Amino acid sequence: MTCERKKAVVLLSGGLDSATVLALAREQGYALYALSVAYGQRHDAELAAARQLAADAGVVEHRVIRVDLDSFGGSALTDASIAVPETPGDGIPITYVPARNTLFLSLALGWAEVLDARDIFIGVNAVDYSGYPDCRPAFIAAFERLARIATKAGVEGTSFTVHAPLIHMSKAEIVQTGTRLGVDYARTVSCYQADAEGLACGRCDACRLRRDGFAAAGLADPTRYAARGG
């Protein structure tokens, strides 16, 4: 008699971090249910990358949900009239998308409850990151508390665990972990203004963090850059 594998919902953007988290969840033996969100992001080439990564990982199911955060704007990632910054600045950058991870985790929580899954994985990082408030340990802990009181399963005594295995890792450590697990980072898209083919600009904050991570890890950067970047 074989034991049924535990199910996990993995938020999969198509970027470097989420690809690493997917590989970690797979290593831990979970039956994987990947969830991507088309939220009106200007770099929607990441969704094609997510589909490829999900297929490569052999997930049980991959769903892409559409939520038009570009209706609100307020971020360089969802409002084409706001330029993506190409030099580091002070404070929380304009690439912050209001309530994005709160929304993503809420969608993952809903699907997890339907699946009778109790584990959710997200690729947030609070070390080499852009300073977003919804990437911090306090946010993850608060969402777990919310899940206990906001769901039928939680009220009936079953708790959900939000796994954020990268949260205390440097970008170099993330790259090293994914490389060990066989992640093909050439398939991932991290750039905030990647073109339709997923080619990176080489100048935005996401590109800088990614490039520095590979350099610090002592590994070749497989990122596909547009001719003007890199």
Rank of each mutant, 00 (worst) to 15 (best):
A141F: 07
R148M: 05
D119L: 05
I174D: 00
V114H: 10
V21I: 04
D90Q: 15
V10C: 08
V9W: 11
L12D: 06
T2M: 08
I122Y: 09
T95Y: 00
Y192W: 11
P222G: 13
F104N: 14
A23V: 09
F121K: 05
A8K: 10
M169A: 09
T151A: 00
S190Y: 06
P133Y: 12
S170A: 12
I140L: 03
G123S: 07
L53T: 11
G154L: 09
L209I: 13
Y192T: 14
A48E: 13
G198T: 13
E173W: 01
W111E: 08
R208L: 14
R210E: 09
E144A: 06
H168W: 12
A196F: 08
D17W: 00
R66I: 06
P98Q: 06
G14W: 06
L115T: 12
D44K: 14
S75K: 02
E156I: 09
P222R: 08
S159T: 14
R148N: 06
S106C: 04
M1T: 12
A48T: 13
R145K: 15
G213S: 07
L105K: 03
G230A: 14
V37E: 00
Y39A: 08
R5G: 10
G123M: 10
N101F: 10
A99D: 12
L166E: 04
H43T: 09
Q193E: 09
S13R: 02
V59S: 03
G74C: 11
F139L: 07
A220C: 09
F214R: 03
A164P: 08
G154D: 02
R210W: 13
S159Q: 11
P88R: 13
A141E: 13
K171P: 03
W111L: 11
P137W: 03
A200H: 14
C201Y: 02
E144R: 07
K171V: 11
R145M: 11
E27A: 14
G218V: 12
P137R: 01
T2C: 03
I92S: 05
F160G: 02
G110T: 04
A217I: 03
D90T: 15
Y185P: 00
R208F: 13
V37N: 00
P222V: 13
L107G: 07
A19R: 02
A99Y: 15
R208N: 15
E86M: 15
A50N: 06
G123E: 02
A83H: 02
Y192C: 07
L69D: 04
L22F: 04
A31R: 15
G89P: 02
T87E: 08
Q28L: 11
A227P: 15
G73P: 06
D17Y: 00
D70C: 10
Q52P: 05
V59K: 01
V59Q: 01
T95W: 00
D79T: 04
I120Y: 02
D17A: 08
M169K: 14
P222W: 02
P137E: 01
I174E: 01
V67T: 10
A196H: 12
Q41P: 13
E197I: 06
E113D: 09
V59E: 00
E173T: 15
V175I: 15
A34L: 12
A19Y: 04
